[in-house]
């Protein structure tokens, strides 16, 4: 699923990486525990989280995750947006709960990692 489709589906707001709306993801992982994210072996994963801090962006960077959704109406700091932009990542804010965000994406065909 393309980033542009994800944004529409979850009524999200793209904060950076607008030029990557054609980037496509097939699998997603939702977690507030970055240690869990760091155990993933898959590449090109969509990360959905209910947290908002710099370590979300760093964890995504180390895990080769190029698209991150901040659910639960969490707001990204300017520092996070700047770092995500520098890393070539798409950062999306979304008002829906993590559960609803995941449900919509799953229903539309985005697959779980396990």
């Amino acid at each position: 699923m393309k980033v542009s489709e994800i944004q529409q589906l979850i009524d999200g707001r793209i904060l950076c990486g607008e030029e990557l709306t054609d980037y496509s993801v097939e699998v997603a992982f939702a977690s507030d525990l970055m240690s869990d994210v760091l155990t993933l072996k898959s590449d090109h994963v969509l990360l959905i989280t209910g947290l908002s801090n710099m370590q979300i962006i760093r964890t995504a960077e180390m895990s080769d995750i190029h698209c991150v959704i901040l659910a639960r109406n969490k707001k990204a700091s300017q520092e996070m947006i700047d770092l995500a932009r520098e890393n070539g990542q798409v950062l999306i804010e979304c008002q829906y709960s993590v559960f609803k965000t995941c449900g919509l994406l799953f229903q539309a065909g985005v697959k779980p990692i396990f």
């Binding site: 507030d32 525990l33 970055m34 240690s35 869990d36 760091l38 801090n53 370590q55």
Partner: peptide
């Protein structure tokens, strides 16, 4: 823990 760490997974994950 608020940062998403501190679950006792760091050292085992480094080893892996």
């Amino acid at each position: 823990r608020e940062m998403g760490f501190g679950a006792g997974m760091g050292l085992p994950n480094i080893k892996k």
